Simulated assay, not measured.
Amino acid sequence: MTEAQWDITEADLDDLVAQVREAGQDTQEAEEIKAALSGGDVTPAEAAGVKRRLIVLALRYGGKALAWLLKHFSQEAAQYVIRHSQRLADFLDRAENWAVDKITRFLEGCGVPVQQAQTIARTIMAIVG
């Protein structure tokens, strides 16, 4: 998949900052993500870390960033992501290393069917690149 397929707009990132603020949380992390993805000078390794943080915040705070994330999934997979967004965000936030098999096993433990769990995990890993 090309990098362009994973682009998130500046408006989506502005909304993420607003969602974090509305939740009464410190917006520093969301603002750092916005700066990095809006033309910041980041290495490929740093970009992967930024995208990891973006996914966690999108899952946790919703809004346009979550809509951006969900568009990469089938409708059925997106429903499972929505249903388990907070638990998935917590799991991903705690995980030092993300891997398809680890994410799949976690989702299966949440009751997600294996096919959908694998699809979700592969998509998340493709976004992180």
Rank of each mutant, 00 (worst) to 15 (best):
P113N: 01
T123E: 11
V114C: 01
G109W: 00
G111S: 07
Q115W: 11
V114H: 15
R105H: 08
Q115P: 13
G111R: 02
Q118L: 04
I120W: 09
D101I: 06
R105Q: 15
E108N: 09
Q116M: 12
T119D: 10
A121F: 04
Q116C: 08
Q115S: 08
V100F: 07
T119I: 03
E108P: 09
A121I: 01
G109H: 04
G111W: 02
K102H: 11
Q118S: 07
N97V: 14
M125G: 00
D101M: 06
F106P: 13
F106I: 12
P113Q: 00
T123D: 05
V112K: 05
G111Y: 02
I103V: 15
I120G: 02
P113T: 02
M125H: 08
I124L: 12
V100P: 02
G111N: 04
A117V: 04
I103Y: 03
L107E: 06
A99L: 04
W98P: 00
I124A: 05
W98Q: 02
M125V: 07
V112I: 04
R105L: 14
Q116A: 14
T104G: 03
Q116F: 15
E108H: 04
R105A: 15
K102T: 14
T104S: 11
G109L: 02
D101T: 14
A99C: 01
T104N: 10
P113M: 00
K102G: 15
C110E: 15
A117P: 07
I103S: 05
M125T: 09
D101F: 06
I124R: 10
R122L: 09
F106Q: 11
K102V: 09
I127C: 01
N97A: 13
D101E: 15
G111T: 08
D101R: 11
T119V: 03
I120D: 05
P113F: 05
M125F: 08
L107T: 10
I124S: 03
I127N: 01
W98Y: 07
G111M: 03
T119W: 08
T104R: 13
